[in-house]
Structure formats: structure tokens, C-alpha cells
Amino acid sequence: MTKPATAALTAPHHLSYTYKRSLGKVLSAFFTALRDRRFLGIRRANGSVLFPAKEYDPDTSESLSELVEVGPTGIVTTWVWVAQPRRQQPLAHPFAYALVKLDGADTPFLHVVDAGSESKMATGMRVRPRFCDVPKGAIDDFVFEPA
């Protein structure tokens, strides 16, 4: 093969998802409230409150619309201790993933508890949210800590 006369042409390539999606009316309200450090659940047909709010009932598929403010404190219903967090995970030091049932909600949801040490974790413990300085309206705007 002969040597090319000029160096190979290069161009930058950034792999990205270049679309913006609307979250819809329920999730938009949910994340806008989160930006304001408030937690919105939604009432189900049986009167219980689902958190996080969703447009439909994940169990019965019924449409839901009545937003209900819950929390901000709650209890841990189950947890695991992540002794060696991965780079992508929310905290660089050991932490717990937990299901947390916010006060006023009937369903626990997945989140993070920054407890400092495993010995501070227990099923049934109370937790409160600790928000970042400038919430952007996302699920990782906050972590829980022992209340």
C-alpha cells in the first residue's frame, strides 16, 4: 500500500440523544414540584396515594389525576448497603439504596440514603431529604439522610 499524501481526515463525534421530550402533565408537575423541594404523589381509585405520581395506575392501568403533596420525611421499608459504589452511582462514598415510604404516601419508592455507615441503617428508620443547592427538577436532586 502506498503512503497517503495527506493525513486522514477527522471530525468530532459526540454520541447523544438530541431530542427533548415532554414529560406530560403529571410527571411535569411532579418534577416541577421537586425543583421546588416538594413531593407530589397521586391518588389511586382505591383512595391510596401512589408515589412518585404517575399518569396511570401501574397495577390497574386507570388514568390518575388528583395530585397529593406527601413527605418530605418518610420511613425506610427495605435497604441494601453499597460498600463499593460505582462511578455512575449518586454518591462516591458507601451508601444505601432503599425503598422509602414518604409520610402520606402508601407506596414506597426507590432512592438513596446517605447514612454515613451501615450501622446507622435499619428497616423502619425515619429519613428526611437533603437537596442539592440548585435543584433542577430531577430524581437525583436530593438524597435522604437519617432524620
Partner: peptide, 8 residues
């Protein structure tokens, strides 16, 4: 939206 961004 509410789970994957936490990378569990």
C-alpha cells in the same frame, strides 16, 4: 425518569 438516573 424516577429510577434509572440513580443507577441502581
Amino acid at each position: 425518569y424516577v429510577m434509572m438516573p440513580l443507577w441502581p
